[in-house]
Design a protein around this nucleic acid. Sequence first.
RNA 1: GCGUGGGUAGCUCAGCGGUAGAGCAGUUGGCUUUUAACCAAUUGGUCCUGGGUUCGAUCCCCAGCCCACGCACCA
Length: 487
Amino acid sequence: MQGQEHSESELLQIRRDKLNTMVARGIDPFGGRFDTTHQPGALRRDFQPDLEVKVAGRVTARRTMGKAVFFDLSDITGRIQCYVNKKEIGDEAFELLTELVDIGDWLGVSGKTFVTKTGEPSVHTETLQVMSKALRPLPDKWHGVTDREIKYRQRYLDLISNERSRDTFVQRSLMVAEIRRFLQDRGFLEVETPMMQDVPGGAAATPFETFFKALNMAMYLRIAPELFLKRLLVGGFTKIFELNRNFRNEGLSRRHNPEFTMLEAYWAFSDFEQMADLVESMVCHLAEKFCGGLLIEHKDDEGNVTRTINLQRPWRRAPYKELIKGVAGEGWFELSLEDKKAKCAELGVEVSAGMVDYEVSQQVFEKLIEEKSFDPLFVTHVPAELVPLAKQNKADGSVVDVYELVINGQEISPGYSELNDPIVQRERLEHQAGEETQKVDEEFLLALEYGMPSAGGIGIGIDRLVMMLTGAESIRDVVLFPQLKKR
RNA sequence: GCGUGGGUAGCUCAGCGGUAGAGCAGUUGGCUUUUAACCAAUUGGUCCUGGGUUCGAUCCCCAGCCCACGCACCA
């Protein structure tokens, strides 16, 4: 809060004066229970005339015409217009509405529905109740909030004033609910595993560290739930999923928020190809339900289509190495490290000095394939170095049985045939730990020794999936409160 | 971390080496079916912060803060 030594600005003072006047007149400015029959948007969408209704919402517009007033009540569902006639409602209530209520206040209204002569579904107001007095003015009624910083730091103002933001977040909520339903319908049980972990595993990101006083030990916010979900496979949960937050202590970008929502699902006795089918059908199901079909159009603020993503099945599946050869030449994998780097310069792919062989190839993949693939692409036969938790391919041990699903120029979902051989798993984790000075999760390896059923597993980055389906250009447009630097 | 752009009224924005403007919101008056209501009048500013240059800085220079975009980082 700001200091009180400065006098309040005029706008704020006027609203406080109105608040005080309400109190002086015995009106509670902060309401109480009000049993609504409809939400504003729902009432307008499924409108019927001559219905006694009670609605509540924020006053987002007011048109005063002498002895009659029109005002809009809004919430996340939409808006409904209310009409007030001075003669009918009485001087006291009319004055409350025109002199003490501001745009931004929350009101509860009872009355009968009707249609005005301009065809607007409306409520003919009989009673008014103040549910909350707003002490600060709302953003511009026409442009809304456009300042990115305000949109993100004060998301409520964005939601109040920007329909597109409201739509995106409502859609996200419905999509997440639908994903849960989709999996539950197929026999998957939702589980919750620790977000505070002793050994942060299941991915290779830098974790956030915290401290647990009671046990006098360092702990980490999870970077993935994978190693705990696999313990549950050992325990006999053969179809499970978890849909919740991961935390990675890395840079912010249009595609990265340090806490992001991940779906992980495991299906015992399955493999990566069956998991690919599952993801394909799930994403298509969501697109048909929420986007009206399998062609997803991304639009700019003017409504021009900027990109069309075609989700029609079957989705393309291609081996990692073939894709790289396609952009870097048939002989790519026979080139020495130096020649690969030289070729990268030719191709306009930046590589850093310390990169080893497979990292250079991965860089080519990311810049020339991933970032340019908008229609779905399952990348298969990925080098084993990149994925220590998946089964090696029986015919070619240098690659693993996984897919990496790319849509909209981003990795949306990996899927594995999960490695369940405890001896091989130990070797691969210790090899990786040696390279990156990571701890090995001994409790996980212990669990594997009791027998983890062979299984397919997937991860789906929910934020990126929602970006793809809603056409959001930044992850900050699909995360309600994205991480920002402290002001 | 680096580079580029930005920060002006509650909001959306213009402006510029001579001390700040519009629209909306607000305030006052008018108006009993309007909807970006309308008509008339009007209030409102740490021009992000701190230095510097200058007779004079919102403007030019330096440093800092925050935001965006790109790069780097990133299973």
